[in-house]
Design a protein around this nucleic acid. Structure first.
Length: 513
RNA sequence: GGCGCCGUAGCCAAGCGGUAAGGCAGCGGAUUGCAAAUCCGCUAUUCCCCGGUUCGAAUCCGGGCGGCGCCUCCA
């Protein structure tokens, strides 16, 4: 049975049925960051999307390997290290750690993080092969790829070499045969870090690392290559040229490119630095809007799981509007999920997060119960999978999740599950339907674990204080002393603690949990 | 100039040939001492514009207009 997943392939510019190269297993390679300055939200888009792709493929029974490379040698790193007066390795390690920390907080699970500098020998070998086959030539300590030697050059970005040359704004370098040729190896200038090579000391060009590391970890031909839309040309185009000329085999089968992030109406990129803006004025304005906020700042206000939910709420190929306003809007939906987990806890008496995570699509045991709620849940599940099958339409899938929550909340309200009247039978139906929700949310990588809560702070002092305040407030309410009871509630709200009165007593929680 | 992507309510966003999902905001109701949370109901005769194909188009084709990306080692 061929599987139902379809992927939009940049190479063919259409959606194609997904068929892995090797039955039952899939390799995904994603272009990661150049580690010279702290990560921004734009760096998280690809990892979150492809992590979700991996989860979905795994769910569909494919053994999936997910590789994200780290470019740890590059002009920008050299310059930044100089500016900070530190070693390039030190800088690269620091930034890499920052990047990986944030990926973990977003529940992105990467199998391999190859670093460019760890693969220099393999790069030299590939460059040697390309020269031997007449696809590359050394010149003045550099080595260039000869684009005219590859007749398919331009197939990914749909360009022709003559058009490239016509539109080129760059001066034709006299050492390159053609302006469109790109560097495989760059001779070192005095004082620059360098590795020995048959063509003299130097460092690798940008594209070669991905060709080498992907073939080492996933094979010369692998399934899915991902990256931002901005990388289609020249980076991915050049990877194809190098790899296919070297191996004589097809490189990646499916090319998936994610849309870029934009700050609302801002046309500049999120990570833009002051120098990238037309004027200081504009740069400042953007910064004040949160345009260049670090991830530490962002996550302080919006928890990583919420950000992940936000990123998945839009289709991956669309540009994502970023900013406080969109985040706040989507946040409402996310908080309803969290509120549901609390409802589940109160109704069932055990943690929602203890329910089983997504397993296998085929081996899944559907709740046998024929209650309308469960049937509705199964219908939602069907739609969810339909969305995901269609080029990983996480936006549609997220919408379905919201509908399931609504159905569950309605059921809980109708059957008065929180009150003593709720029957065990109804609760079992509720639990069965919640299992469907659990499966689907974990498939998206959201709501995996309970949120870190101050309610359960280690010494429990806060909880004891709250118990006391709730008791006092309850007394005030019974005496109809509402000014006092409101003062307690409002006062707590002002310091970030919300109180909610329900039939079963007053609940409280710290803002942002 | 070249190569692409996109344009659906106040906002975000699905739908991709069969008669407009969902969310946010807003309004009305249930519940509440009042709130909050939750639930119910209402909110696009219409999908940037103009042509064409079709029994039928937001969906396909042609032409405009508008926004964006890349063509410069940006995820």
């Amino acid at each position: 049975m061929s599987n139902p997943i379809r992927i939009y392939n940049t190479l063919t510019r259409q959606k194609e049925a997904f068929e892995p190269i090797r039955p039952g297993q899939v390799g995904i390679y994603l272009c990661g960051p150049t580690v010279y300055s702290k990560s921004h939200i734009g760096h998280m888009v690809g990892p979150v999307i492809f992590d979700t792709v991996k989860r979905y493929l795994t769910f569909n029974g494919f053994r999936t390997t997910f590789v994200v490379n780290v470019t740890d040698i590059d002009d920008k790193i050299i310059n930044q290290a100089k500016a900070e007066n530190c070693g390039i390795e030190e800088l690269a390690q620091r930034i890499t750690a920052d990047y990986q920390k944030h990926l973990r907080s977003l529940s992105v699970e990467v199998d391999h993080f190859p670093h460019a500098t760890q693969y220099i020998p393999a790069m030299l070998q590939m460059i040697g092969t390309l020269i031997g086959k007449g696809h590359a030539y050394p010149a003045s300590g550099d080595v260039y790829f000869d684009v005219t030697s590859f007749s398919e050059y331009g197939k990914l970005s749909n360009r022709r070499i003559d058009e490239l040359l016509a539109g080129a704004r760059k001066e034709v370098s006299d050492i390159k045969k053609s302006a469109a040729d790109f560097a495989l190896w760059k001779g070192a200038k005095p004082g620059e870090p360098a590795w020995e090579s048959p063509w003299g000391p130097g460092r690798p060009g940008w594209h070669i690392e991905c060709s080498v590391m992907s073939s080492e970890l996933l094979g010369e031909t692998f399934d899915i290559h991902g990256g931002g839309l901005d990388l289609v040309f020249p980076h991915h185009e050049d990877e194809i040229a190098q790899s296919e000329c070297c191996s004589g085999k097809p490189y990646a089968k499916y090319w998936m490119h994610n849309g870029l992030m934009q700050y609302s109406s801002e046309t500049r990129k999120i990570g833009a630095r002051a120098g990238d803006f037309a004027s200081q004025e504009e740069a400042k304005m953007s910064k004040s809007k949160g345009n260049v906020r670090t991830l530490d700042d962002l996550f302080a206000k919006y928890p990583p799981p919420l950000v992940r939910y936000f990123l998945l709420a839009t289709h991956y190929r669309s540009p994502i509007n970023f900013g406080d306003e969109p985040l706040d809007e989507v946040g409402t939906g996310f908080h309803r999920l969290l509120a549901f987990a609390e409802l589940y806890q109160r109704v069932i008496g055990s943690s929602y997060f203890a329910l089983p995570r997504a397993g296998q699509r085929d081996k899944w045991i559907a709740p046998s119960c024929s209650d309308p709620l469960v049937k509705e849940g199964l219908e939602h599940r069907r739609r969810f999978l339909e969305y995901m099958d269609d080029d990983f339409n996480t936006g549609g899938a997220v919408a379905v999740v919201g509908e399931i929550v609504k159905a569950l909340n309605r059921f809980a309200a109708d059957k008065k599950l929180e009150e003593a009247v709720g029957t065990p039978e109804d609760k079992e139906v509720f639990r069965s339907a919640a299992m469907i929700l659990r499966e689907l949310t974990t498939l998206l990588g959201i709501l995996l674990d309970p949120p870190v809560s101050a309610n359960s702070s280690s010494d429990g002092t806060l909880a004891k204080v709250m118990d006391l305040l709730i008791a006092l407030r309850q007394e005030a309410r019974q005496q109809k002393n509402f000014p006092l009871s409101d003062r307690i509630r409002d006062g707590l709200l002002a310091i970030g603690i919300t109180m909610q009165d329900g039939r079963e007593g007053t609940r409280w929680k710290v803002e942002g949990q």
